[in-house]
């Protein structure tokens, strides 16, 4: 099972705005070319301008979404991607349909119709997405938290009570655990007063979940308490990361009859 993170209408609108800017830049470049062509033939240059505007304004989305697998420049910038709503491969006709239906979605101005439909739709689809059976998702970048730098080398008083640690792991939701981790990773971004207040609130929240004996928590600052919590949530003691096999070798090991 997997889920996709839907892009909201505001992010999508910003991506469209960037794309419109790109189209404007392209048209400026074409305009310069038209000026050169006008020296040879004014009529031809005008015709060239009309065709270029038509092709670029309609073809921009189709071209980029097809060649960049569901992304335009704006979408790339905001890490958005058009995908098939059923998780299948995005097909050319889907891209064409969703882009042609911009004619209706952009009515009466600034994608009002598309924005309203997107806002109301469960999958955040505008009319073009509904017709093409596509959705726009957020495309995250993998990040590897440096837990060693954050947590290693410190005595953790909570580990003296493994039964309570196990209960804490059981009761903490993934979102709560991530909250602690993110707060610690981003501690430098907070104002000192706000940081103290935030860590105080978070520590209070986790203290309410599991009450450790006073020996384990007395004299431990809120921030250190949260580090200890993150440590027991994210790290298993006494294990070091192995050097990874090459995948091909691993496959050969797993499936000796393959090939």
């Amino acid at each position: 099972m997997f889920s996709q993170w839907l892009a909201g209408p505001v992010t999508r609108f910003l991506a469209v705005f960037i794309d419109q800017l790109c189209i404007a830049v392209l048209m400026t470049l074409v305009g310069s070319l038209v000026n050169l062509v006008a020296l040879i033939s004014l009529g031809f240059s005008m015709a060239f301008w009309v065709i270029a505007y038509f092709v670029i304004s309609i073809g921009y989305g189709i071209f980029f979404e097809w060649t960049w697998r569901g992304q335009t420049i704006g979408k790339k910038l905001f890490r958005l991607r058009v995908v098939d709503a059923d998780g299948l491969k995005l097909q050319f006709n889907q891209i064409v349909v969703r882009n042609l239906l911009r004619f209706v979605d952009s009515l009466p101005a600034f994608y009002f119709v598309g924005g309203v439909v997107c806002w109301l739709n469960q999958k955040c689809q505008r009319l073009g997405d509904i017709a093409a059976n596509t959705i726009v998702i957020r495309n995250p970048r993998v990040t590897e938290p440096d837990l060693d730098q954050l947590l290693a080398g410190k005595y953790n008083s909570l580990r003296q009570y493994p039964h309570l640690v196990a209960r804490l792991r059981q009761r903490v939701s993934p979102a709560e655990a991530d909250l602690v981790l993110q707060a610690l990773l981003r501690r430098g971004e907070f104002e000192p007063v706000a940081r103290v207040e935030l860590f105080g609130n978070l520590a209070g929240h986790f203290r309410d979940k599991i009450e450790f004996p006073a020996e384990a928590t007395d004299g431990v600052a809120d921030e250190q308490y949260l580090r200890n919590v993150a440590d027991v949530l994210y790290r298993t003691p006494g294990r070091t990361a192995p050097s990874p096999d090459t995948p091909a070798k691993a496959v050969a090991t797993a499936r000796p009859d393959s090939g």
Binding site: E144, P145, Y234, R239, A241, P242, P244, D245, P247
Partner: peptide
């Protein structure tokens, strides 16, 4: 919760 860093390092390839 698994050892996250070890898990990422070993599976990432």
């Amino acid at each position: 919760i698994v050892d996250l860093q070890r898990f990422i390092v070993s599976e990432r390839p």
